[in-house]
């Protein structure tokens, strides 16, 4: 457990910093992310007073990135938590109960999986975020909710299928058959024997799913259907595209934050999975 490699420590450290930013970012002595520094437009990286520079609106990029962390991390954790929970419940039940329920679940998963992630997310967001009065702008909080719900729906079949696969391979093992033959209740078997064994595989995928959600959120923002003016990394990238020719550092900042976060979650997902593989190999 303790013999983590340097990249693993880096990933843990970076994600820790991101968690800190998202939970306690407001404690830091920053101006609000959309505070306009009128005298400092498009200041470069590492300028005095603006560690990461400013964009053409005069927004400080470090403040923006910290604020963006909160939004991106919140959306990612909420969507992966919800999607992971619903997906696992459905997947585990389908695999454990088999029969018609399983067939229906598998079909639903396949339907979900046969539409590319981003297409599904785009369609959901656009439908759910339509106001009754189409001329009235959708408030930011509702956009956030819509994003979370849409990404949750995207994740359900992905995680559900993995939960189903893992459950299938475990529910065939002797100890499950033994528990069944001893008359143990299904709910108890699932909680005692299936869930603890399926969980590690799901955790490994959940790390990867966090990356998927963060990227999806950013993609939607770039396409203009994410969070329009609220700060998120995707929102920063979308804004920065306009300044691309004159002030590329406006893009570098969110890209680096986003890429390091995704690299870290992917790496940790990998570490969990290889731990898992070596455990399986020993069984």
């Amino acid at each position: 457990m303790r013999n983590y490699t340097k990249p693993t420590w880096f990933a843990i450290g970076w994600l820790g910093l991101m968690m800190f930013f998202s939970l306690f970012g407001w404690l830091l002595p920053f101006k609000p992310w959309n505070f306009v520094f009128e005298d400092d437009l498009e200041v470069g990286l590492f300028s005095s007073g603006h560690l990461l520079g400013t964009d053409s609106n005069g927004y400080d990029l470090l403040s923006s990135a910290v604020a963006g962390t909160r939004m991106s991390v919140f959306i990612a954790i909420a969507a992966v938590g919800l999607g992971g929970f619903i997906g696992s419940v459905l997947g585990i039940l389908a695999a454990y109960l088999r029969g018609k329920i399983d067939t229906v679940m598998v079909t639903i998963f396949n339907v979900g999986l046969s539409v590319p992630n981003l297409v599904l997310a785009l369609a959901l967001v656009s439908v759910l975020a339509t106001n009754v009065d189409i001329n009235q702008a959708v408030p930011t909080w509702r956009r956030v909710m819509v994003l979370i719900i849409s990404l949750t729906i995207v994740l359900i079949p992905i995680l559900g299928r993995i939960a189903r696969g893992a459950t299938l391979s475990w529910s065939g093992r002797e100890f499950v058959t033994a528990a069944r033959s001893m008359g143990m209740k299904d709910s108890k078997i699932i909680l005692r024997h299936i869930v603890p064994n399926v969980l590690p595989a799901l955790i490994a995928v959940a790390f990867l799913a966090v990356g998927v959600v963060i990227i999806a959120e950013a993609s939607l923002s770039i396409l203009g259907v994410g969070i329009p003016d609220g700060a998120s990394w995707g929102g920063m990238i979308a804004r920065g595209r306009n300044d691309l020719e004159y002030a590329p550092h406006v893009l570098y900042v969110p890209i680096v934050f986003l890429a390091l976060t995704v690299i870290s979650t992917n790496h940790l997902g990998d570490v969990v999975r290889s731990k898992l593989d070596s455990r399986e190999a020993k069984v």
């Binding site: 990356g211 950013a218 770039i222 990238i237 595209r241 890209i255 890429a259 995704v262 992917n266």
Partner: peptide, 12 residues
């Protein structure tokens, strides 16, 4: 490289 989203690569 694969952890860097494709839009980021495109923009770079």
């Amino acid at each position: 490289l694969s952890s860097i989203p494709n839009f980021a690569i495109a923009l770079l």
